[in-house]
Simulated assay, not measured.
Amino acid sequence: MLGGGTRGACNHRDTGGMLAVLGLCLPFFLLIGLGHAVGRRSAWAPQALPGLNSVVMLFTLPALLLLMGRDWARQGFEGAALLPVYALASMGVVASAWALAGRAGLAPRPRGLAALIAAFPNTGFMGLPLIAGLLGPSAAAPVGATIVFDLVLTTTVCLVLGGGTPVQGLRLAARNPLPWSVLAGMVWGLSGWGLPAPIERSLALLAQATTPLALMCLGLALALQAPAPRSPLAGQLTAVKLVLHPLLAWLGGQWALAQGWMSAQAAAVLVLACALPSAANVALLAQRLDADDPAVSRTILGSTALAVLTLPLLAWALGVRL
């Protein structure tokens, strides 16, 4: 809720609100750290990472997205009203990151993934529980809408950009199982069909395994990455993700608020979603497509580490109080 009351009470709530955000974020960072520690200390980690990556990309994450797409369709695509503003902010970030990666000399495919890492926030693994915890359960639907947009459109645009030619790019995008999972879930939700209870529970169990496995895979990948010369590109992409993306969202949200097209809560959801660190699944996708670049994983690491500070501060600036 929004703050009020005496200054002392407000300061107490401000401190408590930032500590609450830190408390919500900390488990996600600890799982990444656990994966990193395992990667540093275990001899079997290099052999385990490809298998764990495949489990996440082909089983647990598609199950999560299938159920998410189904539920969103059954809710009447609630929260879709903020997508035009979100799309403008995201495409502005894609263009900026694409230009930065080009100046750094990246090949087309890693360049497309660099653009994706700057535009795709960690809404699935971190944003849904975090923003719903800050703004209430009603924030889940708008956050879910941004996830669908990023998986279906932002990811496809960046993969097409990185494909060399439009045909190659479309083939590359078609190989990504994640948009197909969301679209299949939406079709399922619109159809009204149900599943036997054991199958439904099996899908739910797979979906619940996604976040811890994906975050530990990210930590493993960071630990196993070969040493490479430091590049300013990762720092630039991190700044684009944590500064430019929420700034563009805030500007668009203020305009939509003035036009009466968006509620204050939807505007807050929009900004907080864009202020999340880079999505861990982009690193998994880069490894799967043999297009990994140190800038991608370092951007995830840098944006995740800095978000421990930037997210509570931004939530406080937006007037979010727990």
Rank of each mutant, 00 (worst) to 15 (best):
S297L: 15
T211R: 01
P62C: 05
A107M: 08
P229N: 10
T210A: 11
L30F: 13
T310N: 06
G4S: 15
P179G: 10
P229F: 00
L247Q: 03
G169T: 04
R13H: 14
L237E: 01
A89S: 13
E200D: 13
W316I: 00
Q265I: 05
W72K: 01
Q254K: 13
S54E: 14
G127Q: 01
A20T: 12
F59W: 11
N281I: 07
R321T: 12
G23Y: 04
V56C: 09
L251T: 09
W316Y: 11
A97W: 04
A226T: 15
V240Y: 02
A209C: 15
G112T: 06
A275H: 09
V56L: 03
L213Q: 00
L170T: 10
A114C: 14
S181I: 09
A228C: 10
A267Y: 04
A80R: 13
S54G: 01
P62A: 07
V182T: 11
V94C: 05
G235F: 03
L64W: 07
L244H: 07
G253H: 07
A283S: 14
L220V: 06
A132R: 13
T238W: 05
V320A: 13
P129Y: 07
L31E: 02
A268L: 06
G92M: 04
G105I: 08
H36P: 00
T15F: 15
R298K: 13
G252S: 07
A104N: 05
S278V: 02
T211D: 01
L26M: 12
L313P: 06
V271N: 04
R288K: 13
L224G: 05
D14K: 09
R111G: 11
A173H: 02
R74I: 09
L276G: 04
G33Y: 06
L242V: 12
G136K: 02
G185W: 01
A104K: 04
T210V: 08
P129I: 02
R288L: 12
A97E: 03
P142N: 09
G105E: 11
V93M: 06
L248T: 09
P121Y: 08
G16M: 15
A89H: 12
A317W: 15
P137W: 01
F59A: 13
A267P: 00
R321F: 05
A273R: 00
R13W: 12
W316F: 08
T123P: 01
L66Q: 03
N176D: 13
L106P: 08
L322Y: 09
L52Q: 05
G164E: 02
P142A: 10
A273Y: 06
W250T: 04
P46I: 12
A99P: 00
G219F: 08
P62E: 06
I300L: 15
L244S: 05
L151I: 04
L49K: 07
P294N: 00
R74M: 11
A264R: 14
L61W: 09
G163P: 10
Q208V: 04
S303Q: 02
L22Y: 06
T238L: 02
G189W: 04
G194M: 08
H36W: 15
M126S: 05
V187P: 00
L314W: 01
A268W: 05
L284S: 13
M91A: 15
L289F: 15
P294Y: 03
Q254V: 10
L218H: 03
G302W: 14
L31I: 15
P198Y: 10
V93I: 15
W180Y: 10
V85L: 12
V56I: 14
Q168T: 08
A305W: 02
G35D: 11
S297F: 00
T6K: 03
L82V: 03
A101E: 03
V308N: 01
